[in-house]
Design a protein around this nucleic acid. Structure first.
Length: 417
RNA sequence: GGAGAGGUCGCUUAGUGGUCUAGAGCGGAUGUCUUGAAAACAUCUAAGGAUGAAAGUUCUUCGCGAGUUCGAAUCUCGCCCUCUCCGCCA
């Protein structure tokens, strides 16, 4: 959520930034409603003042005339209050539809095709045979089973088995080991959160709820990422400046309906309704987010480098930035079977966009300010795809990245048949 | 799931229709005294909004929402949460 004061004072900047993100919002209309709400709230305040002083003057022994006066006032006030409430509600809806402004260094662009590749690390793995895709490899190794998953759960689910499971645990060990050393607080968050809280996060508007599993009976929503739990856990809290930055590393299963992605990435475990993810979330002081963003990016790179997987870093252009993000980097790992790079992790700064909405602040001397919130993926299930494909051998076996061997006690996975 | 108790300023709590502009204690900040510290004493001690150059004035917030009333922390209803006991259960 943007600051209404900022919108009021910089309508042109906001209008342009919104357009850069390919979203249309009628700023003029918002300003009109805002003006109206200010007029009404002034009026309401005056009426309340009047009511309060009248009440004060009665002090336990009201005269018939005072009561009559009070009744008239009450009616007037109710009418104006209702009008104000309606206008504020409308204003709220419009303001919530405004996305976060992209940072100045973010390229203006229409969509993903205009994203900037800012870095390439490692060279695409070379094979002297046609590399297989992760599903074929995984099935032969007996570590991925999508057919049986489909039988019991439907499309876009998978069983991970045998060494596949151990590999995921190893990735988790590695990520936690690195991040705990950096001072991150480990956390296992709830994966069901109240619908009302999810709405507060702003993920349910503009069709966002289409991608969520909603449990109507219990009024709960399954998280699409643990970021949703970890970011909202400090809702309505005030940090001491000395406690910032506060960094969490959370592990959770994530649930996504993947509505609107029919027919896309249907093969294997790249895009499924349920997967596991290790997520980093940072709360930092206002203005510290650029530094923190580079830091999170460096950690994500470090993790991929440790796996020795070729990757590139892509900086999203305005048109491809998410709603709350002011800047976003995707790390894309080389996927031999597709002969291209695919997103495995990403990191975003939401500046004070989420904190304003969730009312998360910090005390700076005797002032309070909104914190800056950032998030980034450490690992998800996707790096397993990159490992299987880049480490595959002609005989169908898959070597284990060196760094993971100390957690796994085996160096290679051999086909089961 | 059943029965009961409760949610008030950072913490502990007082408050059961108008004197609440929410009191007290603790904790915290500043000052006086002191070589310094402690103690004592004094003052201050939430968030957000409107207005104003500022001082100030004022509005909202006593878990959340609705209602009753001229007037609600206080009464009514709904919801959320916490605690105790019982039941169930990794």
């Amino acid at each position: 959520m943007l600051d209404i004061k900022f919108i009021r004072e910089n309508p042109k900047i906001v209008q342009k930034a919104v357009l850069d993100k390919n979203i249309s919002v009628d700023i003029k209309h918002i300003l009109k409603i805002d003006k109206k709400s200010r007029e009404l709230s002034f009026l309401v305040q005056k009426l309340r003042e009047e009511r309060n002083s009248l009440t004060e003057s009665m002090k336990g022994k009201p005269t018939a005339e005072q009561i009559k006066k009070g009744k008239i006032l009450k009616e007037k006030l109710e009418k104006q209050e209702n009008a104000l409430k309606a206008v504020l509600g409308e204003l709220q809806v419009y303001v919530m539809e405004i996305p976060n402004l992209a940072k100045k260094d973010v390229k203006i662009g229409k969509n993903g095709t205009e994203n900037e590749i800012i870095k390439k690390i490692g060279k695409p793995t070379v094979f002297n045979y046609k590399p297989k895709d992760h599903l074929e490899i995984g099935e032969k190794l007996g570590i991925i089973d999508v057919l049986r998953a489909a039988k019991i759960s439907g499309a876009r689910f998978y069983f991970l088995k045998n060494e596949g499971v151990l590999m995921e645990f190893a990735l988790r060990e590695l990520a936690f080991e690195i991040l705990l050393k950096e001072g991150f607080i480990p956390i296992l968050p709830p994966v069901l959160i109240k619908k009302e809280v999810m709405k507060g996060l702003g993920y349910m508007e503009k069709g966002g709820d289409e991608d969520m599993y909603i449990l109507e009976k219990d009024n709960l929503v399954l998280v699409g990422t643990s970021e949703q739990s970890i970011v909202s856990m400090h809702k309505d809290e005030v940090f001491d400046e000395k406690d910032l930055p506060k960094r969490y590393v959370g592990f959770s299963t994530c649930f996504r309906r993947e509505a609107g992605s029919y027919g896309k990435d249907t093969k294997g475990i790249l895009r499924s309704h349920q997967f596991d993810k290790i997520e980093m979330v940072s709360y930092v002081a206002q203005g510290e987010d650029d530094k923190e963003h580079e830091y999170l990016l460096s950690l994500e790179e470090k993790l991929l480098q440790m796996l020795e997987i070729p990757y590139q870093v892509v900086k999203m252009c305005t048109g491809d930035l998410g709603f709350p993000a002011a800047r976003k980097y995707d790390l894309e790992a080389w996927i031999p079977s597709e002969n291209k790079y695919r997103e495995v992790t990403s990191t975003s700064t939401t500046t004070d966009f989420q904190s304003r909405r969730l009312n998360i602040k910090y005390k700076k001397q005797n002032k309070t300010e909104f914190v800056n919130i950032l998030n980034g993926t450490a690992f998800s299930t996707r790096p397993i795809i990159a490992i299987l494909e880049n480490y595959q051998q002609e005989d169908g076996s898959v070597l284990i990245p060196k760094i993971l061997q100390k957690y796994l006690h085996f160096e290679k996975i051999i086909p089961k048949k």
